[in-house]
Design a protein around this nucleic acid. Structure first.
Lengths: 153, 153
DNA sequence: TATTGTTATACTCTATAACTATA
DNA sequence: TATAGTTATAGAGTATAACAATA
């Protein structure tokens, strides 16, 4: 080989080393996606992880920090830091959970919801670029299959 | 919500927060995959990253460290450390690249190829578990779609 | 001048254990 | 006794810049 860009044989998938491993394909696709996401979110002073917390707080109701952790596959201690940051910026609030005074329910403020919506709109464009090789039907199929894999818990 | 495991509505994908974002699905699926891969490779004293270097060295011919970096989406300086480790263990060798004395071609030793094959066999089982919700046809479709996304460069 | 491999460094992310307050 | 949130800390992963050898 010995070239700048690794060769990507069009008609011969078997010639792509490691491409038989779903784990490698997931890792590489995720690396591209994560880089694009972080680049896109930079103007909002958000990153993939902080955005995911904000977006979840804006969407879901009555989720505790523990719920955030397991849903986003983060350690509970990481959620603390992420929520701290978003709370200082008045994008989310911690409210005591009804019925369990140990737990905090994390909710987005109006401001947070607005920012999440803005970010989401721009992320759609980044995702569009990432999936540019797929038509609408393929995108739907990929999402459906990934949904099954992502929640094999 | 407020329960240990986040709810996964069967018939209503729209109720899964963030599941409209391909980037979230990729991140979550990759997190599961990476954790399973590292767990599986532990007996071999390998991790996902070192395995990918070893497997690539065993499969592809005449790839320089720079090629490894771009193909595996690692920084060239990370490849140095990973190859150092594998070379100390006599699993790969650095050979001077024919025609360019700056570059190193990384090749697996017989021992390295044998270990890669062993690891690969066990990884197949881990992957089988990860994809347990998908039938053979769906697995092939997912791989084909991911291959397109993973190499949108 | 540009590129390969390398080193050094700092930063982010991840994983673990321990503590407190509630349950 | 167990769980939620928190704190502290160490380890792994990532990103950047600079350098010597070669192109």
């Amino acid at each position: 080989m010995l070239r700048k860009q690794p060769s990507i044989p069009e008609g011969d998938p078997a010639a792509l080393p490691l491409s038989g491993d779903a784990s490698f394909l997931l890792a590489r696709a995720n690396a591209l996606s994560l880089a694009a996401t972080n680049r896109t979110l930079e103007p909002f002073t958000l990153k993939a992880r902080s955005y995911s917390v904000l977006a979840l707080a804006a969407t879901a109701d009555y989720m505790s920090q523990r719920d955030f952790a397991s849903y986003l596959r983060l350690d509970p201690s990481q959620v603390v830091a992420l929520v701290d940051d978003l709370q200082e910026r008045a994008l989310v609030e911690r409210r005591s959970a009804p019925g369990d005074r140990r737990a905090n329910v994390v909710v987005a403020t109006d401001e947070g919801r607005a920012l999440a919506a803005q970010a989401h709109a721009v992320l759609r464009q980044a995702e569009d670029a990432l999936l540019s090789e797929l038509d609408d039907s393929e995108r739907a199929t990929l999402a459906a299959l990934l949904r099954k894999v992502a929640f094999t818990d």
